[in-house]
Design a binder for these strands. Structure first.
Lengths: 204, 204
DNA sequence: GTCTATATTCCGATAGAC
DNA sequence: GTCTATCGGAATATAGAC
C-alpha cells in the first residue's frame, strides 16, 4: 500500500541513479562517476551511503528482481482456469516488460556473468514454484481438454515467446525492417498472438 | 600471395584467447591481461598485433556473428516444404547453440550495450531476408494447409522457443530443480518438442 | 617478434575540511 | 552530510632493449 515517501533524500537520489545506470550497463559497464553525475552529487557520497560499488549493486539488483518475481507468482498461484491463467500471465508479463524493457536483459546478463554473486547475494528468495501449474496442466490433459504435452516444455515455450522478443528487439527491428513504433505495436500485439498460438496448439 | 596458414601462429593464439574471453565476459568484463595470460604471451603483443582492445574485439565479434548467421540462411532459403524447413531450422539452430552456448547471450548483450559500435563496425553484412519464408507461409495459409497466422509472429515464436531457454538456462535449472545433465537433456529434447508444438498450433 | 619496463588514464575508495 | 583532494591499484597502451 504505502511506498517509501523518500521525498528527495540524497540516498534515494543515489539509489535511483544507480538503478538507471546498472540496469542499462550491468555491473562491469557501470561507473561510480556516472552514477554520481546522474544523481547530481559527488562520488564520495556514494561511498558514504553504500560503502562499495558491490553493495550499491546488490541493493539495486534486488529491487529490480522484486519488480518482476512476486507479482508473477500471484497469477500462477491463483485458482483460475488454465486458459485464463495463460491469458493473465501473458498480458501481465508483456505489459510489465513494455514498461520496464531493460529488466530481462539485466537479469539474464548479470546472472550469466556473475552467477555466484547473483545466487548468493541477490536471488536467495522464494522463486515461483511450478508444481501447482504442472498439476493443473496434467489434470487438463487427463480430462481430455487439451492434448498431451510435457508441462515443462509448455511453460518454457510460453515464457520464451513473452520475453525473448524484447531481448532481440534491435535485431528483430533490423531484420523485419520496422520503425520503433511499429516494433512496439508488434510486441503489444503479441499479448493476443501468444495466447492464440498456445491455445491452438493445445487443441486435443 | 601467401594466405594466413596460422597453424599456431601467435596471432591465431591471441585471437583464440580473445574469442574465449570476450564470448564469456563481453567487452567491459574482458581484460587484456586475461587474454594475454590465456594466450600464454605478453600483454604488449596484443597491441603489436591488434593495436587496441576495440580492434581486437571487432575482429572477434565479427567471427562470432559469422558462426551463426550465414548457415541459418541456407536453411531458410532452401526449397523445402514449410514443415521440413521448420524441422531443419529448429534442429540446426538448437544443435548449433548446444555446441556454442554462449553465442546468443554475447550477441544479445553486446548489441544492447554497444548498439552503435555493433551496428557500425560489426554487423554490416547481409542479414537473413524474411520475405521468402513469409511468402511460403502465406501460400500455405491460402491453400488451407495451415490455419491463418501472421508470419512475423510465427517466426518470432519459433526463434524465441529455440534461443531463450539457453539464455535462461541457469534460472530455469533453479526453478525446475534440474541437474546440469537433466537440463542439457531437456534442451536437446526441445528439438522435437518445438516442432510438435508449432505444427499442432498450425493445424487448420 | 617478443620481452620488460613504464607512461597514462581511469576507477574505486578514503581522508579530512567545513 | 557534503564537499575537495588524493591515494592506490588496475587497465590500456607505448617505448625501447634484444
Amino acid at each position: 500500500m504505502d511506498n517509501k515517501p523518500q521525498h528527495d533524500s540524497t540516498e534515494q537520489r543515489i539509489f535511483d541513479a544507480a538503478h538507471e545506470t546498472f540496469l542499462h550497463k550491468g555491473f562491469d559497464g557501470a561507473k561510480m562517476q556516472e552514477i554520481a553525475d546522474r544523481a547530481g552529487i559527488n562520488k564520495a557520497l556514494l561511498h558514504y551511503y553504500y560503502r562499495t560499488k558491490e553493495k550499491l549493486y546488490e541493493a539495486v539488483a534486488r529491487a529490480i528482481i522484486q519488480t518482476a518475481v512476486p507479482r508473477v507468482r500471484g497469477v500462477l498461484e491463483s485458482d483460475l482456469s488454465l486458459e485464463d491463467k495463460l491469458t493473465q500471465f501473458v498480458h501481465f508479463y508483456i505489459d510489465l516488460i513494455l514498461k520496464n524493457p531493460y529488466i530481462p536483459l539485466f537479469i539474464i546478463s548479470e546472472i550469466n556473468k556473475h552467477p555466484d554473486h547473483f545466487f548468493d547475494k541477490i536471488l536467495p528468495k522464494e522463486l515461483p514454484k511450478p508444481e501447482l501449474i504442472f498439476r493443473q496442466i496434467e489434470s487438463e490433459i487427463a480430462a481430455g481438454r487439451i492434448r498431451p504435452i510435457d508441462p515443462k516444455h509448455l511453460i518454457i515455450n510460453v515464457v520464451s515467446m513473452c520475453v525473448f522478443p524484447f531481448l532481440a528487439r534491435p535485431i528483430a527491428r533490423l531484420i523485419l525492417g520496422l520503425s520503433a513504433e511499429e516494433m512496439r505495436a508488434l510486441l503489444e500485439a503479441r499479448k493476443h498472438e501468444i495466447v492464440s498460438f498456445v491455445m491452438a496448439s493445445l487443441r486435443p
